[in-house]
């Protein structure tokens, strides 16, 4: 019984952790959206900033991956 409650808590926690991925999605969307609006204003400068955009995506995405990892840990390793 106690184990079931612990497991229930773990699963609820896993679900809650997944909301963090929404934040990462918003972050990635902001990065790419701003990149595109900047690129449309000044297309000649866009090529030089593509790498920067990918670095920005990587940084914001990493945090979503962390929450995903927490969810996985709760699901499988608790």
């Amino acid at each position: 019984m106690e184990g079931d409650i612990v497991q229930m808590g773990a699963y609820i926690g896993a679900g809650l952790a997944c909301t963090g991925m929404g934040g990462a999605a918003i972050g990635v969307g902001t990065v790419v959206g701003n990149y595109i609006s900047g690129a449309l204003r000044n297309p000649s400068a866009s090529a030089s900033q593509t790498a920067t955009m990918f670095i920005g995506i990587a940084f914001s995405e990493a945090l979503g991956i962390f929450s995903f990892l927490v969810a996985l840990l709760l699901m499988y390793a608790s």
């Binding site: 995405e61 990493a62 991956i65 962390f66 995903f68």
Partner: peptide, 13 residues
């Protein structure tokens, strides 16, 4: 940490 977990997490996910 972020460098490694980003890659492994993306692939695993």
């Amino acid at each position: 940490i972020s460098h490694s977990i980003r890659l492994a997490g993306n692939m695993m996910a």
